[in-house]
Design a protein around this nucleic acid. Sequence first.
DNA 1: ATTGGTGCAAAGGTTTTGCAAAAGT
DNA 2: ACTTTTGCAAAACCTTTGCACCAAT
Lengths: 141, 141
Amino acid sequence: MEAKQFYNTKARKYILEYLSQNRDTTVTAADISEYLDACGLSVNLTTVYRYLSRLVKERKIIKFSSEKGAGWVYQLSPDEKACDEHIHVKCINCGKLLHLDCGFMNDLKAHLAQKHGFCLKCSGSILYGLCDECNKKDRAK
Amino acid sequence: MEAKQFYNTKARKYILEYLSQNRDTTVTAADISEYLDACGLSVNLTTVYRYLSRLVKERKIIKFSSEKGAGWVYQLSPDEKACDEHIHVKCINCGKLLHLDCGFMNDLKAHLAQKHGFCLKCSGSILYGLCDECNKKDRAK
DNA sequence: ATTGGTGCAAAGGTTTTGCAAAAGT
DNA sequence: ACTTTTGCAAAACCTTTGCACCAAT
């Protein structure tokens, strides 16, 4: 059995392009669709969803449940690291998503394990807050 | 202007009852509806949703976006503490939800602020993992 | 009697699925 | 040619809203 073939289409090129341009944010299927429209491509939403689920299976992108309660948001995986080894912190103002990929992750895991008997699985875990920039803007007001 | 009146109805009594019985888990509107059915009450889903949003406004319960991507989950607030002062950690196996209400929260906040310029807002923040019990069960297999 | 609560039906929004047609290789 | 992608339409979900009727106080 062989690896599946993979055809290059404009729709996919542009979807990936959009995800790349927004690698520090999560985006919705609708966002992508809007971008495609703006590019003059007419691509059905179904196609967007289908490609997204494929990218999820290939672990090229991560899928989070949207804080809006309805539906999903997506983001390109950072190339180097598996996203299930760190948690994510998202700015509720600008949408920026930090991959909390630092030494503190170990402290957090250790604390949860030792004090709460809890074994952290990072994938899908999101904390919310305000990023540096948005904080400053807020204060400036 | 006076506080709104509040009528006691069976539906509400049982909804609160179910939330109390499951104060260590998040539940969906459908879960509640099922419980009401099992109790022999016939209550419309709309009623459940309406009462839930009221409870949210009154801050009696917290509303999280479901990790399933579609819809919301709810949980009774722990009486003493505001849920926006700590984060939540949820077991992906049994659904148990821990309110991470301990000293470590300060470390976490401090780290995010100092190293990442990020100001944590706890409400809605959930981490996922396996709780103690489910961990043991897993290992027993 | 008055105010608040409920059921029903419909609408809103997002995601998924089946099938036949279209496009990439 | 062969296989993958796509569009369309429909369905599946979950949640919200409007309105008329019912129930609690």
